[in-house]
Design a protein around this nucleic acid. Sequence first.
DNA 1: TGTCGGTGTGTAACCGGTTACACAAAATAT
DNA 2: ATATTTTGTGTAACCGGTTACACACCGACA
Lengths: 327, 327
Amino acid sequence: MTTIRDVAKKAGVSVATVSRFLNGSGYVSADAAKAVTSAVDELKYELNPVARSLNTKQSNLIGLILPDITNPFFPELARAVEDVALTYGYTVVLCNSDENPEKEKNYLNTLKKKYIAGFIVTSNQLDAPHYANMALPIVALDRAINDKIPTVSSNNREGAAMGTNALLERGCKNILFLRGPNELNPANERYQGFMDAIEASGAKYHVVTCPFHFSESQKITDEFLKAHKEIDGIFASSDVSAAGALKAAVTLGIKVPEQLQIVGFDGIAMGEMLSPGLSTVAQDVYKMGAIATRVLIKRIENQPVDQHFYEVPVQLKLRGTTKGVAE
Amino acid sequence: MTTIRDVAKKAGVSVATVSRFLNGSGYVSADAAKAVTSAVDELKYELNPVARSLNTKQSNLIGLILPDITNPFFPELARAVEDVALTYGYTVVLCNSDENPEKEKNYLNTLKKKYIAGFIVTSNQLDAPHYANMALPIVALDRAINDKIPTVSSNNREGAAMGTNALLERGCKNILFLRGPNELNPANERYQGFMDAIEASGAKYHVVTCPFHFSESQKITDEFLKAHKEIDGIFASSDVSAAGALKAAVTLGIKVPEQLQIVGFDGIAMGEMLSPGLSTVAQDVYKMGAIATRVLIKRIENQPVDQHFYEVPVQLKLRGTTKGVAE
DNA sequence: TGTCGGTGTGTAACCGGTTACACAAAATAT
DNA sequence: ATATTTTGTGTAACCGGTTACACACCGACA
């Protein structure tokens, strides 16, 4: 392995000069620069990032902490983070936290020792002390707004209102809202959005809390639909729940969208694979991940960050579970 | 930050002794051990992994190279890798390669400089020179068997035969096989398995090549079904393709499973969300990832690896797209 | 009693970079 | 012409560990 000393010798300068040239720090004459440049590529020198990390106490690692990559919402996010990180020369460490504070803390500590540059975090624990005391740049994604930590999220409330209105405009008179878990910020915002729209309309509605889990959602919807035949629209706080609702309806022989219209929230790829295709309020997950990563890198590199809170607009995608679109 | 020298001073021994004790290498007396132990926890000393890496030329990083985490097959794999890695004290770096050799090579080099401990790779490029010349432990997943590199994969051929027989046993007389891309090893094995079963049966069949992509599969199936009304069974080489086929059938008004039965391959979570639920040859993706990671870590830690090739059994999951099961 | 092998420990070099500091030459100011 | 900056460079310490090597001590064995 060629070291900086080899390069220095070959170029006839000191290691300090080589280092300064390589980092663009301090003064380096044109002659020295040329000598170093040619020594570097003659020797095919590549800087050792570990040695560098040891004294700069910095690395180009970014930690991505999320509940579970298996949840269909996250792969696209991870992909965006990785893509953007790559273009800036950063490497992504994947951390599945299961929303477990101990696991999160553990990752935080382990990676801090590796001089990780920063974290992108999707968690409900963001107000926990281990985040507050972190001296590292962090950007929060999707959940939990903390005045210390820049956050990127969707326009959940407005999106939920859009989704609800889509049902109302298509004639729904009695809507079931599958509300997400209370602990989740986005779920609460979506609930707000639903309430905004439904109360403005005066339509009848029911709210049922329901985890973002397929079979649970299916079961809950199944029971509810059996007891409430009058329901003609369902707005679910997540696509996975909507898929459960759709399956329940189809299984009960209810015609979608003729008798019952359904709108989900998220815009995950699975939506279009269902029959009929799932109408949904689609988040631009990739964009969220990309923005979060860019903001994080700016923070890491001490560049000014213009905003503290980024809201990415959602988009209504109407497919077969609502009236007026084939498929 | 407390360093090993602080510990040495506190314990009244030399840094060498502390290091030896911490690593369990060389001789350390009981007295010294005790002194170091208490110094360590009085000072809350934590070893600096970067400094260690610099001279051992080893880290506890594992690289996970896969085509695209967005592909529903991979999140569970990534999850398994991460889970197992964590229990052994390793950290996972996520690399989306898009099957692009340049990107792969780039990751390999970048991470090698970081003294990464090893790689788990899903790629078709495994015979490319940049893998052959790697001096690092590698384990291949799902694809490409190379006599140098231990491989973990599913029992694709047998699985495909199982899937095909499931259709035959349920009365299919005219089966469409959606074959996966030629470049993919598993796709070829599945093709073999299909051929094994179909030729033994004497039933009529068609083979159409089709990417593992939803809308493409839907389109191809749609066209094929329009031209071949006699088809009464489809076996797809992936669940995503099967989902496309199902959607095509439903859209054409063909009743599944009454007129047309469908079986997919993979066992991704989406399968049960479809209506009817997708019958499939399920791979134990989590297990594959877990095995691969354990094998890799054994290699990293120079423990003997008993096998060179691991085949994880698949399991037939019958749901609503085949006859005889409700849902 | 002398020698040998196992046990236990410390010193200092080393991993491969960065950078504080000292110093010199050139450019500019007074 | 001298003082002051600015430019340019090298030496050596440092980041925080690991480990080769030298050395000392001990019991055992001939």
